[in-house]
């Protein structure tokens, strides 16, 4: 079976995200002062062939650990795309 999986990779919360800060500042300049804690990350979408969703998740987990995320600085979440 093919599973479409989505991964969101962000800097760990303890790490300053200067890009997020800069965007937050720009949003405030636009008058959107009620927005806070902007964090910018990466979105990866991929198709994985597996017997079931559990196995698909395990494969993506390995991909995150080995390449897609850097454990020193990144957190990641894995979800199955809706409708896949």
């Amino acid at each position: 079976m093919n599973f479409t999986m989505e991964i969101i990779i962000t800097r760990r919360p303890t790490i300053l995200d200067p890009e997020g800060k800069a965007v937050e500042h720009a949003l405030h300049e636009l008058g959107l002062g009620n927005i806070a804690n902007v964090r910018i990350g990466k979105h990866v979408k991929l198709i994985v062939t597996a017997d079931d969703e559990e196995q698909a998740r395990a494969i993506v987990e390995e991909a995150c650990r080995k390449l897609l995320a850097n454990p020193v600085m990144d957190d990641y979440t894995i979800t199955r795309a809706t409708g896949s």
Binding site: L16, P18, M73
Partner: peptide, 17 residues
């Protein structure tokens, strides 16, 4: 070297962007 694990740590985006 940091990514390959030969040295500890990592290099983030410059604080100034």
């Amino acid at each position: 070297l940091c990514e390959s694990g030969l040295l500890p740590g990592s290099l983030l985006r410059n604080a100034s962007l």
